[in-house]
Nucleic acid binder design. Structure first.
Lengths: 169, 169
DNA sequence: TCTGAAATCTACATCCT
DNA sequence: AGGATGTAGATTTCAGA
């Protein structure tokens, strides 16, 4: 119910010159897409019908938009948000790493990818080459992990313990 | 199919003394829970029937387990994983902040919470008090954001630009 | 993008162990 | 307590317009 009668208005607001300028693949994300994305970030299991209501669109229109966002890679996937501490990962830290041998090929990310305690890996501009986010069960495990990281990637590590996470959107 | 015939075995392995020791809420997470969590982290929109198949359980058993994990806070929620660059957030950074006045009440997280460019906020042990992860559209926006952070929380900032994100599980 | 109908999924009540 | 089955009501999917 309450469809937005925008077609005519949109046409009036965006009159097009005679030549269609090269717009091969319309990659534009409009306000409805943004609304859908916002809702799906807030609740990754929101139903198409709920989304349709909020967007004042039909279920199938929402479905095709969501599919499009997914296939374009705007929405990469959906995931459950799990409390690490409930799973025994009581200690989180940022680990900044720098190569020991600056002339060696720098493939730290792929070398470290298999280590499940490493949650994320970013290359950064600054004192260090990469910053990792890691989660382990205890200080003892962190020690083991740092040892493994140093050996695997031939790097120095500099760790910053996370005391509390206030939010992580 | 292929139910594990564990009841008798479990009873034999865990004989209980006469007094039920204070076990108010069994907070144990078993292997099936872990499997369900793993699947839901990999695909937050997995259906109960899919999960039931993978766990070799009935749909209703899976349903009650997932509900339990949700109400216990093990699963905090579900979210869509969105490509920030597709939304015009071309620049990400870690921003470490330290209070200008160490004697002032330290409520930086709540003061900063409303700023939408701030994705996460952790208090840390180390040179700085907090580490934020921020996403903005351009260097110019980062400058504005840093200004806003400094003013809002009365802190110094030290930023580390993220050049590339290799993975973020 | 909409409507509508079929296939699938979820929620819940009931029974079993 | 935890799990199976059955069923009504939602939800998703897909055709045609």
């Amino acid at each position: 119910m309450a469809q937005t009668p925008r077609p005519a208005l949109a046409g009036a607001l965006a009159p097009r010159g005679q030549a269609t300028r090269t717009e091969p693949a319309k990659l534009a994300i409009d306000d409805i897409d943004r609304l859908l994305i916002r809702e799906l970030v807030a609740d990754g299991r929101a139903t198409l019908s709920t989304l349709a209501e909020k967007a004042s669109l039909s279920v199938s229109a929402v479905q095709s938009r969501v599919r499009r966002l997914e296939s374009r890679g705007v929405i990469r996937g959906y995931t459950a948000n799990v409390d690490p501490e409930a799973l025994g990962q009581m200690l989180s830290a940022f680990v900044a790493i720098t190569p020991l041998d600056p002339s060696a090929p720098d493939d730290a990310p792929s070398r470290l990818q298999h280590i499940s305690a490493i949650e994320s890996c970013h290359s950064v501009a600054g004192d260090d080459s990469y910053v990792l986010m890691v989660r382990v069960g205890s200080p003892r495990h962190l020690e083991q992990l740092l040892h493994e990281i140093r050996q695997t990637a031939n790097v120095n590590t500099r760790s910053t313990i996370i005391l509390q996470t206030f939010y992580d959107k």
